[in-house]
Structures are given as C-alpha cells and as structure tokens.
C-alpha cells in the first residue's frame, strides 16, 4: 500500500512538471510575449523598444532557465505576479479557488445523496414504474447542457418568479443569489451519476449472489442494503471522483453565466488578458486536483472491491 502511494505521488509530481513545462513553453512564445509587452508598458512601443522591454524583464533568456526560475519559485509557494490584477498570484488565486470550493461543496452535498438514491431506487427493481419515471427524469436532466438549463432557470426563477437572483456574488452568498448556479450544475450532474448508479445496480441485482441472498430468506430491503449496495457503488464511485476535475472545468461556463467570480471565471479572464503567471498557476491547481482525485478514487476502489486487493 505504501509503495503504491509512493509510486502514485512520484507520478503526480512528474506529470506536474511535464504539464507545467508544456503550458510554460506555450505561453512564452515570442508573439505572445510581444503582446504582453505592449499591454504592460506602452501600446505604442516600437519593435526595438519591445525587444529591450523583453530583454529587461528577462524574457530573452533561454526557455529552460526561465522555466527553472518559475519552478524554483513555485516550489517555495511563490507563483509569480498577476499582470492583470497587478498583485501577487497567491493573493488572486486562493480566494477565487475558495469561492469555487464553496460552490462545489454545495453541489456535491446535494448531488451525491440524491443521485445515488435515485440510481439505487431505480435499479433495484428494473422495469417497474419507479424505475421508468426516475430514469426518464435522469435522462432529461443530463441531456440539457448547463448553459441551456442555466438560462432557463434564470428566466423561470429570476425573470418570471423573481424569487432568485440571476447573478451570484462571490464572497457574499445568500440563498437568493447562490441557488441558481448550484441548481444548474446539480441538475446536470444528478442525471449523470444516477444513470451510472442505476446501470450498476441493475447488473448487481441480476447477479447470482443476490439470488443466493434472497433464497436464504433475507427480506428484499436487507438484500439491497447488505448485498447489493456495496457492489453497486464501485462503478459510480469512480465516476463521482472523476466529477471533481470535470466540475472544475465545467464551472467555467456556469461561473461566467452567473458572473460568479470563482476559479473558472479567473481562468477565462487570465487566458483573455494574457496573464501568464495566473494561467500557469491555474494549470498547476487543475493537475493537482485531477491527480489527487484519481488517487483517492483508486484507494477507494481498493476498499470497495476486495477482488483487486491482491492483484
């Protein structure tokens, strides 16, 4: 187990290096830097002035040296300076990440229990009316993309009913201004996870060991809870874990839509404004999140499924 963890951590670290280097080399190509120079110093600079600005700010050094410098700083926790916000990156990114964190917290708090419940209820008796209605509901919510449902919800709850606000204010959340972005993501996600859970549950309920348990004289609900649930949750668990990185990119649309100034919003504006250090830092955060959730997913998988423990 320890060896496994160590291996995964090394992989995480190497991926981080490779990825940050790729992003780094892409954002520091010549035309991009010129644009940066014009933005930062003076829009009307001549070509030679641009060159000397680049020289002065160290952008003329070899790529590896520049990357090494960035990496050295990043390791000590200094992610550089945001050219757009004119503040250190650390002061920009962490509060925004916090905002998105709060959003995700509520999304997961609502999605996971509801989705699992729908999936299990639908899947435990395949083909019944409960199954059909829940399945149709799930398919419906997943097939409407967030940018559509977000607008629909805004029209419905904000423009018509006027009970919720169409703009979410990060850092000062209330039910009225926060419910819509959460609802938009939850609606999409519930359907997705519920469908996975249902499929997995149907498969498990049809297996022979469930028959064994039933013919032992075990009541139906006990069979579901004791024998089916754990085996049925193995597949959805991985999916849920994959939702974390997916949400991180998925929130880009929702945050933009509701003007919620979180991580997704920041990523978009950083790319817009050619904010090199912020873009890089966002990349690092994304990679760390993807790989850690993968790690948690793998460990959880081992706990749920004793069959792979010895292979």
């Amino acid at each position: 187990m320890l060896v496994f963890l160590l291996k995964r951590l090394i992989v995480l670290f190497l991926t981080l290096i490779c990825l940050s280097f790729t992003v780094f080399s892409l954002v520091t190509i010549e035309p991009n830097l010129k644009k940066l120079a014009l933005n930062q110093a003076n829009m009307r600079m001549e070509e030679d002035e641009v060159q000397s600005w680049l020289e002065k700010n160290g952008y003329k050094r070899p790529l590896l040296v520049q990357y090494g410098e960035w990496l050295g700083n990043a390791v000590t926790g200094d992610f550089g300076y945001s050219t757009h916000f004119r503040k250190p990156v650390n002061e920009v990114i962490w509060p925004k990440l916090g905002h998105t964190g709060i959003l995700m917290f509520w999304v997961f708090l609502l999605t996971i229990p509801i989705a699992l419940m729908i999936g299990v209820l639908a899947g435990m008796r395949e083909g019944t009316k409960t199954d059909r209605s829940l399945s149709i509901f799930a398919i419906f919510t997943t097939s409407v993309p967030p940018y559509v449902s977000g607008i629909l919800f805004t029209i419905l709850f904000s423009s018509w009913l006027g009970i919720l606000k169409g703009v979410a204010k990060a850092g000062n959340i209330t039910f009225a201004n926060f419910a819509l972005p959460v609802l938009t993501i939850v609606a999409y996600d519930i359907g997705y996870i519920a469908r996975m859970t249902r499929a997995s549950m149907v498969e498990v309920m049809g297996s022979q060991y469930i028959r064994t348990a039933r013919l032992k004289g075990m009541p139906f609900m006990a069979v579901v809870l004791k024998h089916a649930l754990r085996n049925a949750l193995i597949a959805p668990f991985t999916v849920i874990m994959l939702q974390f990185p997916w949400l991180l990119t998925g929130v880009v649309i929702v945050e933009k839509l509701f003007n919620y100034k979180g991580f997704g919003f920041l990523l978009v504006s950083a790319a817009d404004q050619n904010d090199i250090d912020v873009t890089l830092a966002c990349g690092v955060v994304a990679v760390v999140l993807v790989l850690t959730t993968q790690l948690i997913s793998d460990i959880g998988y081992i706990f749920l499924n004793p069959r792979i423990r010895f292979s």
Binding site: Q208, Y209, T212, L215, K216, G217, P219, L304, P306
Partner: peptide, 25 residues
Amino acid sequence: ELNEIRGARISMIYQEPMAALNPSI
C-alpha cells in the same frame, strides 16, 4: 412467511458456487 421457509426449511445449492457468493463480503 416465505422468507421464514427459504434458507431454513428449504434451501438451495447452485451450479456456479463462486458466482453464488457475494464477492465483497
């Protein structure tokens, strides 16, 4: 009442014993 009979008074063994046992218990 059926459940009281199943497994106690009438019980069953199966063709594929490995599949008849829950893999995670």
